[in-house]
């Protein structure tokens, strides 16, 4: 689910894509295992390449601003983002390769900064999430034990409620609850909890769209539940699946180009 978040808010990459809808299986009458649900979500993430344009709307103390970016994505581990607007942010780039993260600040700074140590704590573009979140292991199944605890509709769509509990020491969140669309296998709502059980963060999906045989999330809102802010909205303006992405995009050299 982490990657889903990355998809929606952080590195605006639409990873949460589902093709299962096309099989139009009737929703399982019997409850699937948590593991099965996670596997299905994880499998979605390793879909082939995608590129597109997305917008992030950040509600801060001092007002609202919107950031547009173009993204390229290959598999679960490689992604590249170039910011388009506002002019202030245009030309900034970000590259994620596995568990490494770099940003590039264009001229006049012209510097590539490895995001590590303290910098990982910084917020991405002023949103409620930090760079560190991007380096999270994107395969939920490697991090969490899952259990389907019930079913509940979200936005009129029937969902499985999946409760996940981390089984490694370095998971950013101790537990999560996801509402997964029974039919499309898209996560429609997610809550993340601290070890103490306190709700820390909450994501809601406002809109999902279909391109060809794929479903993808086109509008979501992310909120830090400890602070009184209004959260960050994420909108996919356009997306293209299976595009040819030159391999050199996913390299440090591409940051300076």
């Amino acid at each position: 689910m982490w990657s889903f978040l990355i998809a929606t808010v952080l590195l605006p990459l639409p990873l949460a894509v589902s093709t299962w809808a096309q099989e139009s299986r009737p929703p399982d009458a019997s409850r699937p295992s948590g593991r099965a649900v996670l596997e299905r979500i994880d499998e979605n993430l390793v879909l082939d390449s995608a590129t597109g344009v997305s917008e992030m709307i950040i509600h801060g103390r001092s007002g609202t601003r919107s950031i547009r970016s173009r993204f390229w994505k290959q598999g679960a581990d490689s992604s590249f983002v170039e910011y388009l607007s506002p002019p202030r942010e245009a030309g900034k780039k970000m590259l994620k390769l596995g568990d490494m993260l770099w940003t590039y600040a264009p001229e006049p700074a012209d510097r590539i900064i490895t995001i590590s140590g303290h910098l990982l704590r910084q917020s991405v573009m002023g949103s409620d999430l930090s760079y560190e979140d991007l380096l999270e292991n994107s395969r939920l199944i490697e991090v969490y034990d899952a259990e389907v605890t019930g079913e509940e509709p979200v936005g009129g769509r029937p969902c499985w409620v999946v409760r996940m509990t981390s089984r490694v020491d370095d998971a950013a969140y101790h537990s999560r609850t996801v509402w997964v669309d029974k039919e499309r296998w898209l996560p429609l709502r997610e809550e993340r909890y601290a070890r103490s059980g306190r709700l820390l963060k909450k994501t809601t999906i406002e809109e999902a769209q279909r391109i060809g045989e794929r479903w993808y999330i086109s509008r979501a809102t992310f909120r830090d539940m400890l602070s009184s802010g209004e959260g960050t909205e994420y909108i996919v303006e356009s997306i293209e699946f299976g595009a040819e992405i030159p391999g050199h995009i996913f390299s440090k050299a591409a940051l300076r180009q």
Partner: peptide, 16 residues
């Protein structure tokens, strides 16, 4: 007051 911290492994935690 709510306090939030990260444990040694980096997991977020919060409590009253």
């Amino acid at each position: 007051v709510v306090v939030r911290w990260r444990d040694a492994g980096g997991t977020f935690d919060a409590a009253d």
